[in-house]
């Protein structure tokens, strides 16, 4: 009886195996398609040259620089804010206090805002109201607002992951909490914080909708952060939708974007496994 039921062919078994197979096949199809269409003309010069003929030819040098600048601005603003808020939530206020609840609720709501609305907000607030116009600064600031909730959450979790013995040890040595945070807690939590930062970078690099109307389309080499600059994802979008015959170039840029994201993810996984092995702390990815 048991034997028979084990070997009986079940319809649901087919269903349960078919779904993941389909998804995996499509995933391979997408990544394979991107590689197939774009790999042939990828070279070092592509990464450093300026785009020609609206991006159909030439490289993506200025676009990579713009992307880097946008992400740098984003991180320069978001990391201090996130670190501060996460330290407060993890170390200074009880989890269920009213203050902590309000901070958490507002961050949860912020995380729910769709990226296109961040784009609207950025163009109205940073570009028009603050007079920054289409610029790398506007784009970076908009992205900073967007990734802040994720950043705070991961940093808070990694701070909470630090064993209480460290805090007690520091207190027993008579350290002020400030000194304990700077010399003990932050160094111990640093790998987890880094994982959070990389997660945020991944989001920022992949984002398009929030950047179109904040950092703009200009594909020249930016001379300062007040210049407009085209992010890599915006470049792909523009090539595929607005430039006739730009598909091949869009795929080429997609490979670079995917490589970039893989690098970020790889870094994250390395740090994560290192963390698990060396410290026995499990950061949340």
């Amino acid at each position: 009886m048991i034997e028979r039921s084990r070997f009986r062919f079940d319809g649901h078994l087919l269903l349960v195996w078919a779904a993941p197979l389909t998804i995996t096949a499509i995933f391979v199809w997408i990544v394979g398609g991107v590689l197939l269409h774009g790999l042939d003309q990828l070279s070092w010069s592509y990464l450093v040259e300026a785009p020609r003929r609206a991006g159909r030819q030439g490289g993506i040098g200025p676009i990579l620089v713009s992307t880097l600048l946008i992400v740098s601005v984003c991180l320069a603003v978001a990391i201090p804010l996130a670190l501060g808020a996460a330290l407060l939530l993890a170390e200074f206020v009880p989890r269920r206090s009213t203050g902590a609840r309000i901070v958490r609720l507002s961050l949860d709501v912020l995380a729910g805002v769709p990226s296109i609305v961040f784009g609207l907000f950025g163009s109205a607030f940073f570009c028009s109201l603050l007079g920054l116009r289409f610029s790398i600064l506007s784009g970076g600031l908009t992205l900073a607002c967007m990734i802040l909730p994720v950043l705070i959450r991961t940093i808070e979790q990694s701070l909470r992951g630090v064993p209480n013995a460290y805090r007690m040890g520091a207190a027993a040595l008579g350290l002020t909490r400030t000194r304990a945070i700077v010399t003990v807690l932050l160094p111990v939590a640093a790998p987890g914080v880094l994982v959070g930062v990389l997660l945020g970078v991944g989001r920022a690099v992949a984002e398009t909708a929030a950047l179109i109307f904040t950092s703009g389309y200009v594909d020249r080499m930016p001379s300062s952060v007040l210049d407009s600059g085209r992010a890599l994802s915006v470049h792909i979008f523009d090539l595929s939708l607005n430039v006739p015959g730009g598909d091949a170039a869009a795929y080429r840029a997609s490979i670079v974007l995917l490589l970039l994201l893989m690098l970020i993810n790889g870094g994250m996984l390395c740090i994560h496994s290192l963390l698990k092995r060396v410290m026995g702390i499990s950061a949340q990815i």
């Binding site: 398609g33 991107v34 398009t208 792909i236 979008f237 595929s240 598909d247 994201l261």
Partner: peptide, 11 residues
Amino acid sequence: AGIPSVILGLW
């Protein structure tokens, strides 16, 4: 989940 939506759109 990590593939940017613009690349899925291109595909």
